[in-house]
């Protein structure tokens, strides 16, 4: 197995899918000549030409709509948002157009498009550039929301997303692009809607996704020193949520902490907690706790930013609490 970065894993997925299916094309700001704002599309313009690697004006609403329209007539666009912060300008196209077309037309018209780009906070980018919007999109029936945490998942999930006949919101992490990891050689497809146990454990389940997976793994190491055996469950896909995996893990550990980068109110964790309390009520030995980003716009100051972000000590503290160890 080759060790590649998350960025290159995504690049591989794009390249392989564009080679496999001529209907797949990439569109977005700086994806072509510039080779991608984060170099995810490096080399694709040269290989596939400007009709399939399309640089757009800075018009998120416009090119998101173009993607939806192209998908409505059968193409498989991959629409890159430079970041999901900018995609707010296009949210109408995702929510009102992409998510609803199949339903409004009683199944006649689908939107097999992927909307992808980095989400969440990087470092000191301040309020407008440091937002995790998973729960916005996961709220919408008709959309799928995918949040890979590792290079292998990034590649496998992007390939699945491109092949999927529904609109997929694919959220990457700017801080993850340089993450290295083993990626299986050859055809590697990870199905949507399947969570993954990144670390097996008996005592407490830490539910996480995207960047919080690394945080949870680090927290699990700390907990291990306290003889707490934490299970790290990477949701990978927020919608559809892998309820079965969630319940299986909680039935094993009886305790659960949900870590997410986004804000607490109506966040992904809220849905996870709801699912657990409804479906696994009799398995719980403690209330499920959530660890989220602070309920504030992201500050610029480094110390304040650190305080606002989810980190391993916060996850460890929550885990101790659900274990009644604090």
């Amino acid at each position: 197995m080759a060790v590649v970065t998350y960025r290159d894993a995504l690049n591989q997925a794009l390249r392989e899918e564009m080679q496999r299916d001529p209907d797949v094309f990439l569109m977005g700001e700086e994806v072509g000549v510039y080779q991608g704002a984060y170099k995810v599309s490096r080399g694709l313009l040269e290989e596939f030409g400007p009709m399939r690697v399309v640089d757009t004006p800075i018009t998120e609403l416009g090119f998101a709509g173009v993607g939806v329209g192209a998908a409505m007539v059968g193409l498989r666009p991959v629409i890159e948002f430079m970041t999901w912060n900018f995609a707010l300008l296009a949210i109408d196209q995702l929510v009102n157009s992409a998510a609803k077309m199949r339903y409004m037309s009683a199944g006649q018209i689908g939107v097999p498009a992927v909307f992808r780009g980095p989400g969440g906070a990087a470092l000191q980018l301040a309020a407008q550039h440091s937002q995790a919007f998973e729960s916005f999109y996961a709220h919408i029936p008709g959309l799928k929301v995918v949040t890979p945490a590792t290079p292998a998942d990034a590649k496998g999930l992007l390939k699945s997303a491109i092949r999927d006949d529904d609109p997929v919101v694919f959220m990457e992490g700017e801080m993850l692009y340089n993450l290295k990891g083993e990626v299986p050689d050859g055809e590697h497809v990870v199905p949507l809607g399947r969570a993954d146990v990144k670390r097996a454990g008996r005592d407490v389940t830490i539910v996480c996704h995207s960047k919080t997976v690394a945080v949870a793994l680090k927290a699990a190491e700390t907990l291990a020193k306290e003889e707490v055996d934490a299970e790290v469950l990477d949701l990978r896909t927020i919608r559809p949520l892998d309820t079965a995996a969630l319940l299986e893990s909680v039935a094993k550990t009886h305790r659960c902490v949900v870590a997410e980068e986004g804000w607490p109110f109506a966040g992904v964790g809220a849905q996870v907690v709801d699912t657990i309390q409804r479906e696994a009520f009799d398995e719980l030995d403690a209330p499920v706790l959530r660890v989220t980003g602070a309920d504030v716009p992201m500050p610029y100051n480094k110390q304040l930013e650190r305080a606002a972000k989810v980190d391993a000590p916060k996850v460890v503290a929550a885990a101790r609490s659900v274990l009644y160890r604090d």
Partner: peptide
């Protein structure tokens, strides 16, 4: 009592009123 404790107590026939809780 936690939901789990209630279930296990019911399964094992333990009277929860006779158990001292160490949780919050």
């Amino acid at each position: 009592a936690s939901p789990l404790a209630r279930r296990i107590a019911a399964e094992r026939g333990i009277d929860l009123t006779a158990v001292s809780g160490s949780g919050p």
